[in-house]
């Protein structure tokens, strides 16, 4: 077997698979910690083990041969990947801050940031559209949901 030098590592896939495996193991251990009665583990335990076996089967796919068919992410530049990650970061910030700084402020800032990330270069268009859309949404959703949205400015 002299395939050693001919394999590469798909790091992103490795991270994803690790996250799944760690989550499954942690969940199984947590459930076993609560109770080992069948009424608790009936489905979780066999399914977790099944998932771990599947993960073992997938593992070689994380280290494909260099000459193997390309993985789905092909021809992506570093800039494009950075944009995706920036968008994810913005979405996370929005989720964690909207109750603290108010839906109006958080939403507006998110809109401005993501429109810029998506390539809107005209700042007046960006700010105008973001403000308009924020107001529309807050009054739209605000009137029909059975509880209020925390707001700061509006």
């Amino acid at each position: 077997m002299s395939s050693k030098p001919r394999r590469k590592v798909v790091w992103g896939h490795l991270v994803l698979l690790s996250v799944i495996v760690v989550t499954v193991i942690a969940y199984l251990l947590d459930a076993r910690g609560v109770s080992t009665l069948p009424t608790n583990l009936l489905l979780i335990q066999p399914l977790s083990i099944f998932a771990l076996i599947l993960a073992a089967f997938i593992l070689p796919g994380v280290f494909p041969r260099k000459d193997a068919a390309k993985e789905p992410v092909a021809g992506e530049t570093r800039l494009e990947l950075m944009r995706c990650l920036a968008l994810i970061a913005a979405l996370g910030l929005l989720a964690f801050t909207l109750e603290r700084i108010g839906f109006d402020v958080a939403t507006f800032l998110f809109m401005v940031a993501t429109m810029a990330i998506c390539g809107e270069r005209r700042w007046w268009v960006n700010i105008g559209f973001s403000a308009l859309f924020t107001i529309l949404l807050i009054y739209g959703y605000g009137t029909i949901t059975p509880f209020p949205f925390p707001l700061t400015v509006l």
Binding site: T107, F110, M111, T114, M115, C118, Y141
Partner: peptide, 20 residues
Amino acid sequence: HYLIPSVLVVSNFGAYAIEG
């Protein structure tokens, strides 16, 4: 570049609305 921010924000409002 209009649609992505708008739809993400709408989804976000929807997610908040359904969970409170």
